[in-house]
Amino acid sequence: MSVQKKKARAGFFIILPSLIFIGIFVYYFIFLTVRTSTSNWNSFSALVKGEYQFVGLRNYQRLFKDPRFQTDLWNTLFFTLFFLAGCVGIGLFLANIIDKKLKGSNFFQNLFLFPMAISYVVTGTVWGWIFAPGNLPSDPQGINLLFQKLGLSKFQWMWYTSTKSIGKFNLALIPVIIAAVWQMSGYVMAMYLAGLRAIPEELIEASQVDGATGTQIFWKIKMPMLRPITLSAMIVIGHMSLKIFDLIYAMTGSGPNNVTDMPAIYMFEQMFRSNRYATASAIAIIMLLMVAVVIIPYLYYSFRGSK
């Protein structure tokens, strides 16, 4: 056996245990969840009996007719959209400012990244208190109280307990989006910063000699170079957003008429409060499909090039 072959064999056997574990704990378990989602296990007694009765896609059909789940899907869509836009927008903006290497920019960089180190549960608890509306107009609380003190009372509103919406977009999601952007925008900023710093200095200098303005340099040179980073950031933030749970659980719960409800919250409730294991599994599989639609093409393109 050649050295090369020996090495390849060793490589395979090193990976094998991990493959087996991932095979069981990811792929086989997903299969089991799919199986549960097509069963009649919608009560504790059905589970105890353990008799598997196949009901086809009934649990899925019911979910799509369920107004709460419909709300959840819309909420996920809008939350993801604004969470992404917020993180990418603020991240890119701040990265460009920090990149000017002003005095103290290291301090700002660290500060903006700080929230990353903290659990969503902590974040949710604190922001939940800040955005608690109080009994308007007489007893404002949190940020509403701050508005009052600053003479901005007209900006007071019900925040995450508001039941107003624009089309399908529940306004109550705004404070949740703010909290999520607060947490993750620093991360995106750091990614862009690394990207900016990797752009060869000569490139910028050359275009400056050619008389390009700052704006032109930004759009014509920097942005195209940063495109892979934008893609990475969107993948990371996007898949996080599709399965968001902790932040909502700690901050708002599902809210009045489920204005801040998400599939993950509904799934948790179905599984652990209502004993509807089959319905809960169906929600989980729908969540998985949403993530897969984003991730599989990404993985495919990432690994297609390198053999």
């Binding site: 107004p67 008429n257 204005v259 004993n275």
Partner: peptide
């Protein structure tokens, strides 16, 4: 319990 959660959801929707 399955009825209870759905009942609460229904009332929650009604309230808003």
């Amino acid at each position: 319990e399955a009825f209870v959660t759905s009942f609460n959801d229904a009332v929650n929707a009604l309230v808003t």
